[in-house]
């Protein structure tokens, strides 16, 4: 997504979907806006999840494009 890591202070647990609207890309769009035109996958604490998954105040969250290994 053009950024390797950012730190966000959460006051309370939230969802992956809500977090996406808080994160702005270098072009000003939020991650949730960007996900309308491209597939953005998410992992919480290194486990693949969807937008409804909970994020705790200490979670490691990653957003990335569809994987292309192998």
């Amino acid at each position: 997504m053009g950024q390797s890591d950012i730190e966000i202070m959460l006051e309370a647990p939230t969802t992956v979907g809500a977090l996406k609207s808080m994160i702005k890309l270098p072009n000003g769009a939020s991650l949730s806006e960007a996900s309308l035109t491209q597939t953005i996958m998410a992992a919480v604490d290194q486990e693949m999840v969807d937008d409804s998954a909970m994020v705790s105040v200490t979670s490691e969250v990653a957003f990335f494009p569809p994987v292309t290994g192998g």
Binding site: A43, F64, P65, V67, T68, G69
Partner: peptide, 18 residues
């Protein structure tokens, strides 16, 4: 599995799409 491939082509680079 979280792997991503970027390929070098004559014009530069591109990330491979799934």
């Amino acid at each position: 599995a979280t792997f991503w491939k970027k390929e070098s082509i004559p014009d530069g680079h591109r990330w491979i799409e799934s």
